[in-house]
Write a protein that binds this DNA or RNA. Structure first.
Length: 465
RNA sequence: GCUUCCUUAGCUCAGUUGGUUAGAGCAUCUGACUGUUAAUCAGAGGGUCCAAGGUUCAAGUCCUUGAGGGAGCGCCA
């Protein structure tokens, strides 16, 4: 079965053929006209462009036509014809119209005039029907597909890492507890502690904050793997760049050093942006025209420029020499603040920057230690306005160095015994990174709030829909 | 979590120094118009000014508290 969708009719009308019968179904964006002819703008989500349905008022009951309001869903049979009007090449001359579902215009919240993003967020169940969100959701799909295609074409294997975990992976942030306890009656041990032995898994468990540690286990067997799944952070973060539930892509590669890692990250992002330009130009044009006049130019430029590669120490020097007054003073050893990253990316270099070799104190325990004893082979990819889009590193492959670092941080080998086993048995140099999927989408769509690039955002105090 | 701003018609927003009956566009309803492009034109209906309390002769406007939302910062992807 091959059902035609509006995209097929609009993009390749020859498939149906001018003058031939056609059947279309979709949601009404607007109806206009006069006593003799009515024009219905129809959209089925397959493409941002509407298909114009022309209804001769003599052929239809007035009562039927009045039901065709913004938001209603209709089924039309008719003939595909060349359009007499400007603005579209083809249109459907309606023979029959069936109203699947009406939408009382006094109650239907979406109108054909502009709505604010804030208002649309409050009706997240209906906003997929807007042009804007249709574009975002099609781009979101295209990027998800392109991610799988990119890795599959390069021999990476999609590894499914667990969402429920007992490890406090890398201390990446606050975690959501997972339990089947009756919270009004939590079992306690004799000394008053929560008795997790009685819980579902027999130990304290959380929703994952990263699939990386398990990803490394896969890389130490399959060579190159990637994960792509939801990730959870219980941080009380209230910003346009944070979600409590978001999607992350985490490739992990055996025999990749930090330079290989950077090469992959840069190539990967450029591939994804190019994929959007090649496959979703209709959506990008709409977003470019309606929301962000520089969007397409910005995307094209990213595919062409070489990302700046810079050591942390050199970055500190640049910031120290900057004329700009920073709220947070700069000195070697600090974790870079937003204002510092933005200065480097938006003012100094004016293109994406990959920062490497951070002080070990501000990075995670598993990162490969440099010979200077002070820095680790971390890399952060920084993008204009959205900041850190990728964080990664070459991993510490040496068992003793890893153990020493873990002890310095007051952690124990027992917590991560399975992770340490990869360093005990057939350890190998390897690297990986995490790409925030929604942050990628912020860049690709030109949207400015991360809540507008995921269908149903989860943020502090908000889990509606 | 900290700082700050916003909340007026179904939607987007004006509303002066506190002063008569709170306005506009779109949407809705009525009418006009033979091909529109967020159609256009004429008219009509539509308000607990976020909530509670306070100051005042008088509050959409000032103050306090609360709710919801945005932005900046922190945490990070």
């Amino acid at each position: 079965m091959n059902k035609l969708r509006l995209k097929d009719i609009i993009k390749t009308p020859e498939v149906v053929g001018i003058g031939n019968p056609v059947e279309v179904k979709g949601w009404v964006r607007s109806r206009r006209g006069n006593n003799f002819v009515q024009f219905i703008a129809l959209n089925d989500g397959s493409i941002v462009t509407n298909l114009q349905v022309v209804a001769d008022t003599a052929k239809f009951d007035e009562a039927l036509l009045k039901q065709i309001t913004t938001g209603s869903c209709i089924h039309v049979t008719g003939k595909l014809v060349e359009s007499q009007g400007k603005g579209q090449n083809v249109e459907v001359q309606a023979e029959t119209i069936e109203v699947y579902g009406s939408a009382d215009p006094e109650q239907y919240p979406l109108q054909k005039k502009g709505h604010s993003m804030e208002f649309l967020r409050e009706i997240a169940h209906l906003r997929p029907r807007t042009n804007y969100f249709g574009c975002v959701l099609r781009l979101r799909h295209a990027m998800a597909f392109a991610i799988h295609k990119y890795f599959n074409d390069r021999g990476f294997f999609y590894l499914h890492t667990p969402l429920i975990t007992a490890s406090d992976a890398e201390g990446a942030g606050e975690m959501f507890n997972v339990t089947t306890f009756d919270l009004n009656n939590i079992p306690r041990t004799e000394d008053g502690q929560i008795d997790y032995k009685q819980d579902f898994f027999g130990k304290h468990t959380n929703l994952t904050v990263s699939g990386q540690l398990e990803g490394e286990l896969g890389a130490m067997a399959l060579g190159n793997i990637y994960t792509f799944g939801p990730t959870f952070r219980a941080e009380n973060s209230n910003t346009p760049r944070h979600l409590a539930e978001f999607w992350m892509i985490e490739p992990e590669m055996a025999f990749y050093d930090i330079k290989d890692n950077m090469d992959l990250a840069e190539d990967f992002i450029k591939y994804l942006v190019q994929y959007a330009l090649d496959n979703n130009m209709d959506d990008l044009k709409f977003l470019n025209d309606m929301f962000d006049k520089e969007l397409i130019a910005r995307l094209e430029s990213v595919t062409k420029v070489d990302f700046v590669r810079l050591g942390y120490t050199e970055a500190i020097d640049i910031l120290l020499q900057a004329k700009k007054k920073f709220e947070y003073p700069v000195k070697w050893g600090i974790d870079l603040q937003s204002e510092h990253e933005r200065y480097l990316v938006e003012n100094h270099f004016k293109k994406p920057v990959i920062l490497t070799d951070y002080p070990k104190e501000i990075k995670a325990f598993y990162m490969k230690q440099n010979d200077d004893g002070k820095t680790v082979r971390a890399m952060d990819v920084l993008f204009p306005t959205i900041g850190e889009i990728i964080g990664g590193s070459e991993r510490e492959a040496d068992y003793q160095k890893l153990l020493t670092r873990v002890h310095e941080l007051g952690m124990t080998e027992e917590q991560y015994w399975w992770y340490f086993d990869t360093r005990k048995f057939g350890s190998a140099p390897h690297s990986g990174f995490g790409l925030g999927f929604e942050r990628l989408l912020l860049f690709v769509t030109g949207m400015t709030n991360i809540r507008d690039v995921i269908p149903f955002p989860r943020t502090p105090q908000n889990a509606e829909f």
